[in-house]
Design a protein around this nucleic acid. Sequence first.
DNA 1: ACCCCCATGTAAACGGTTACATGATTTC
DNA 2: GAAATCATGTAACCGTTTACATGGGGGT
Lengths: 195, 195
Amino acid sequence: MREPTTRYVLLGMLAMHEAMTGYEIRAAIELSVRNFWQESFGQIYPELRRLADERLIRAAPRDGRGRDAQPWRITPAGRGALREWLGRPPQRQARRDETLLKIFFSRHAEPGTTRALIASAREAAVAQLEPIEAGARMVLSDPDDPDLLSSLLVIDRGRAAARAQIAWCERALELCDAWEQGGAEALLARWRKTP
Amino acid sequence: MREPTTRYVLLGMLAMHEAMTGYEIRAAIELSVRNFWQESFGQIYPELRRLADERLIRAAPRDGRGRDAQPWRITPAGRGALREWLGRPPQRQARRDETLLKIFFSRHAEPGTTRALIASAREAAVAQLEPIEAGARMVLSDPDDPDLLSSLLVIDRGRAAARAQIAWCERALELCDAWEQGGAEALLARWRKTP
DNA sequence: ACCCCCATGTAAACGGTTACATGATTTC
DNA sequence: GAAATCATGTAACCGTTTACATGGGGGT
């Protein structure tokens, strides 16, 4: 049995932010959890309808946002559903990294591909780091935010992941060096140096 | 435009291993890249048929494996397709971690949920580490393997990711402590201590 | 006799992205 | 006046998982 996660992301965001439109929820996801979650409008809008049908959210009065903007509010039942989901052990983890897969097979590619893949993985991680630091500064500027702990935790996780990625890329390039210069022997020597 | 990755995983495995059945390919995936990729039989068997139709693989003679076991071999065209895919920049990355999502929303759960989630994330990472080390020992026992570099690279990545996860979990628990004992002020102090 | 592993496959359902359509409002 | 952003939605398509079906071979 699989479980749709989208609805709980929507409920979670509405639990944090009082009243939001689908568009704003999407923006909030991109702002806060973008390093480990994403949702498309094609998921968000139909799911909001379903949540409203089940009385887990309810339409809030339209104020001066945009003409068509429909803000939603979480209901007590919605908070209950969210709490219940949070209490269940998480099961799904993505486990899909195309870059690493390519690196794994790269012996069968054009020469130099392994290095190129590692280098671009490093660049991607470095690029990830910048918005994370910007997010950190933003969060730190409002110490009264009740979600301060949550925000810092996920920021720290994204940062740690990016840093680990960068460190691995550098080590990986060293292992490539050793392999190219001294074959299996040198590679294993380099490997054993820092296990 | 999206691109099916399954076929290239199959081609890659057949490029590494000479002749394999669908079942063996699945086992090889679970052995080597399971930390960042997975395939189900429902994907593998139909895709093998398609690859055979396109002459990227071809049926190898059945030897004494099992009665129904059908080994496949990669063709030169298949190697070409694999090489071409490896040369294209990787695009998809999963970006989906339900555990972290729950941690992010855990302020709206029963008290203690945040800690419980972090603790179970830590345990999961520790459990991941054991088979990785076993895999490392296995790879190191055969230094003549032409895929030695590839294997060590992905093993090192899995290990680095698991270790980073464990380290983050410990820091996260410390941040929880600070928050619970001294509120925002203590949390920020702890945060700034090791940024 | 029973159970587990090997082995292949199909069909349904689901989760998710992409493309498309539409139009208001704000900013340069 | 043009461009960007705000805003909602639908339909098609695709990738993936799950459940189901089937049966041989080997071990206890």
